[in-house]
Design a protein around this nucleic acid. Sequence first.
DNA 1: ATTAGCACTCGAACAAAAAGAGTGCTAAAA
DNA 2: TTTTAGCACTCTTTTTGTTCGAGTGCTAAT
Lengths: 353, 353
Amino acid sequence: MEYDLTKRKAQILRAVVETYVKGGEPVGSKYIAQNVMPNCSPATIRNEMADLEALGYLEQPHTSAGRVPSELGYRFYVDCLAGEYKKTKAETELMSERLRGKQHELDKILAEASRLAGSMTNYTAIAVRPRADMTKIIRFEVMYFDSRNLVLVMLSGSGAAKTRNLRLPFDVLPTDAAHLANTLNTFIAGHTLEEITLPLMMQAEEEMGSEARLLSVAMKEIYSGMEEQGGGEIKVDGVDRLLSYPEFSDVGKLRGLLGAIENKDGILDTISHLEGDELGVVIGKENLSDNMSDSTLVVKKIKKDGKVVGAIGIIGPCRMDYANVMATVDALAESVGKMISTELRMLESPKDK
Amino acid sequence: MEYDLTKRKAQILRAVVETYVKGGEPVGSKYIAQNVMPNCSPATIRNEMADLEALGYLEQPHTSAGRVPSELGYRFYVDCLAGEYKKTKAETELMSERLRGKQHELDKILAEASRLAGSMTNYTAIAVRPRADMTKIIRFEVMYFDSRNLVLVMLSGSGAAKTRNLRLPFDVLPTDAAHLANTLNTFIAGHTLEEITLPLMMQAEEEMGSEARLLSVAMKEIYSGMEEQGGGEIKVDGVDRLLSYPEFSDVGKLRGLLGAIENKDGILDTISHLEGDELGVVIGKENLSDNMSDSTLVVKKIKKDGKVVGAIGIIGPCRMDYANVMATVDALAESVGKMISTELRMLESPKDK
DNA sequence: ATTAGCACTCGAACAAAAAGAGTGCTAAAA
DNA sequence: TTTTAGCACTCTTTTTGTTCGAGTGCTAAT
């Protein structure tokens, strides 16, 4: 993306964004001239601002008000910021510290990190977990509960385990459970849904012999487990903080945003459409969900061994303290990334609760 | 609870509640005289209303406004309603129908029922799941993922399964996994946390021989799994619907309520303090959480074999369509109760990991 | 290219007045 | 004794008008 703004225009735009973000009120030429560029007169600033408005970077709420950044304006600001928003080393250290040793499960770590991000920035935070890919199950286990109930455990290639209760309309023996597990591991494990053909099933049934009906009950659950749609999960923290911001005192907007957060699909979509590993900043109408067209999402994916294992992010109004939020999300995501790659050592350290 | 109101006072109070609930505006004597009690003059109603106010059932927003029910007024109304709020058989049937066959896991059934309750009443719905009791694990299973990763499966007496990933700082063989499972089933299964004594552990370690370190990793996870506190879970549906109600355009109140919903502790407390199996209606300051003191919670526990396995409920402003909400929640909870007693043998749905 | 000066616009804040709804009280009626 | 009509009173809501001030755009001078 190329922006050809003169240095001075860029400086003014930046000043407008920062001032408006802080104060929440449209900023006028006088203010800029006095506080930011003392060697220019208000009139000069006015001219420049008029230009910036014509170029689409600024907007005017009404004729006699100051200027406010447009979404493009924010976009420019954010793009300019890229690279220089990082937290200091000390702060990063501190965050890592507050995260460390708290939890051992990825879920919990993500939740804690997002909680932290939320409370540090005073915006609403989300923790995202991609949906477990159960497309290919590499191993089955069957546990005997009682004569009419078994528990089926499915292990995916990524290490995610899923359990399913099998309620049977007939009695079985513990040996049947083992037999079932065996059969599943022999014929079904390692295949995707499409690869499970009729001949394969017939072989498996033959293997089960008289207990073929048990197999069919299990297969039903396996199918539903593998098919199960519904994407990842989002944990939200601090929705109430949205209400701190005047932009959401508009009931309609707030309602839309709450809906979007609850719906989660739009957010997941947006995140999954993000390219690259870098911090993503999705401003206003850049969001895929219409209901989020007045909000900004700052999010960073967390990778482990090259695979995305989650993300943490912040949701707030477009008028957002970008520098702080970006730095915080970035640093926390970084911390989490480091934590989960050094987890081996953690397991050895004494448990603290 | 005894209320000694004359029949007429009761009738007026009831009329005020219903009118106010519907219209959202204070109701005056004239309205009642014309639409509800045509054989009384406004003056008579006024006198009665003054009495009702003195008794604490009604309130006046300001001198020259109509009357509004106090929380006590709502309480009276709800208590009077008890018994006559039920949905018709046909409606109940319909709801059961919409629930049936959708899902097989208790979690999902509860979520679906609450979702339904929310959309039928246009309030915010919650689905509550008590925490899985992992106090006693009756069976273990260990799955081999790779040489440094195992998956531990724990099965509780109630049929809930929980999985845990074991990351190892050393290499193991598939036979070690089986060995570990064996040892756990022999020495640990069937015991509560307190019953696992040092001698027991030593026996187990001896059994594991050279792979005792594997046991200690597993035990750490088992402990954390069994100890894991944090009460039930609440799934919320339709927070955005809160915004339909003018009482929550007060930012402070809305904020408090959102906080309370997110916090969930207050709600869980309130629910667990409810006595009996009947429909619970918690009005305003009856709520344990201060943040809910302007809201009403209508909730019904769902039991299975005498054990509470969940609850569904509705949250809204005190000015709520009690008859409809109570009937809906009651009927849906009833439906769920019936469903799980005919379709599910095992109490808990599996916990995915 | 910049700046000073000025007329102009438009919202915010305030005040005063008018409208309307509902009450409480008193005295008459049932 | 209970009910009702009548009336003065209170308090909110809405309307209308006015002022104030911030900030702009434009023009002419620097």
